[in-house]
């Protein structure tokens, strides 16, 4: 927007109100709000998949904006791997309380106990893949027809091909070669019984867009996103937390204390840290802006193969 135009949008006094602001014209925010409203209007049982990470926290703020002054008209659901950073869980519970919305938690541990999935073992074991089964079971249990998620197209190559309304069959599978075209703003949410739609309102945001938004909106995020002292160890060029039991560490892997922060907060067993002194949101935004390493560069789950994400998505992964 040119400067002249933005001046024209300056508010004139609304009678009886002191609001005198320029109406936000963030195209990405307007798009995300539009998408969230389409979900509420087109589906009977939507749910917002909440991981406690910055993207899903951003989604929650966007949902608040979309439906104000009403409450967010769908529950949040957390698929808990049991390997979350404790900071994330504490944050999640506090946020849900403030919002007054329903939180559903389903545990990967239960899927393991029921024998539906088998825990991986060894040095690179992770529960990240196991989430899929728990998620699909929860979708069936609650008959959710739309699952809103914070995935972004800039994260990974297979995600760059993802639709905003992405249809999944009864088995949660993504048929990447047969996706519905999405034209103009029009979102087609028509599905058959048993199918569901994954919805990605921040598809077109980049990592920097999300961080800048968190800064501008002054949104609270879990403390592990900021630089802090942590006991860590080094393996394969990645920094791992040595404070949390679920991360496998061999005897000979030396523990050190460093200033680190996490760039994503997935399952602890596949999320590595970066060295950083960025202890405020301003510094984090600055660091991301200057960054030379992509966001998922710190996610070991994508390193398994060139097509790791595409394969997981076909199987119903988020």
């Amino acid at each position: 927007m040119s400067i002249v135009e933005s001046e024209l949008e300056t508010l004139v006094d609304v009678s009886g109100s002191n609001e005198l602001e320029v109406l936000n014209n963030n195209a990405l925010e307007n798009e995300a709000i539009y998408i969230l409203r389409e979900v509420a209007a087109q589906f009977e049982k939507p749910v917002l998949l909440f991981s406690g990470g910055k993207d899903s926290i951003t989604l929650v703020r966007l949902a608040q904006k979309a439906f104000f002054p009403a409450k967010i008209p769908f529950p949040l659901m957390h698929i808990d791997t049991g390997h979350n950073f404790p900071e994330t869980i504490a944050f999640r519970d506090k946020l849900v309380k403030e919002l007054g919305v329903e939180l559903i938690v389903r545990n990967v541990q239960d899927s393991i106990d029921q024998g539906k999935v088998v825990e991986e073992t060894g040095k690179y074991s992770s529960r990240n893949m196991l989430q899929t089964t728990t998620l699909l079971d929860a979708i069936e249990e609650f008959k959710f027809d739309a699952c809103i998620g914070g995935a972004r197209r800039d994260e990974e190559k297979a995600r760059a091909k993802e639709r905003i309304f992405s249809v999944r069959d009864d088995f949660g599978q993504w048929d990447e070669k047969n996706q519905r075209p999405e034209l103009f703003d029009m979102l087609n949410g028509q599905i058959e019984l048993g199918q569901n739609v994954r919805v990605f309102p921040i598809s077109n945001w980049t990592e920097l867009d999300v961080w800048s938004y968190i800064q501008k909106e002054n949104i609270e995020i879990p403390s592990i996103y900021f630089a802090h002292k942590r006991k860590i160890f080094l393996r394969d060029g990645f920094i791992w937390s040595a404070e949390d039991d679920v991360v496998f560490r061999a005897e000979d892997e030396k523990v050190e204390e460093r200033m680190v922060r996490f760039r994503t907060v997935g399952d602890m067993s596949c999320t590595s840290a970066v060295l950083s002194h960025a202890d405020t949101i301003e510094k984090v935004v600055g660091e991301i802006r200057e960054s030379k390493i992509s966001e998922r560069g710190a996610r070991i789950d994508d390193k398994r193969s060139e097509a790791a994400m595409e394969k997981r998505k076909q199987q119903g992964y988020f």
């Binding site: 800048s212 800064q215 760039r263 970066v274 060295l275 950083s276 002194h277 960025a278 301003e282 510094k283 935004v285 600055g286 660091e287 991301i288 802006r289 200057e290 960054s291 030379k292 390493i293």
Partner: peptide, 10 residues
Amino acid sequence: KLSAESQCQI
């Protein structure tokens, strides 16, 4: 590190 020690404030 993601970047050289960044002091840049936006």
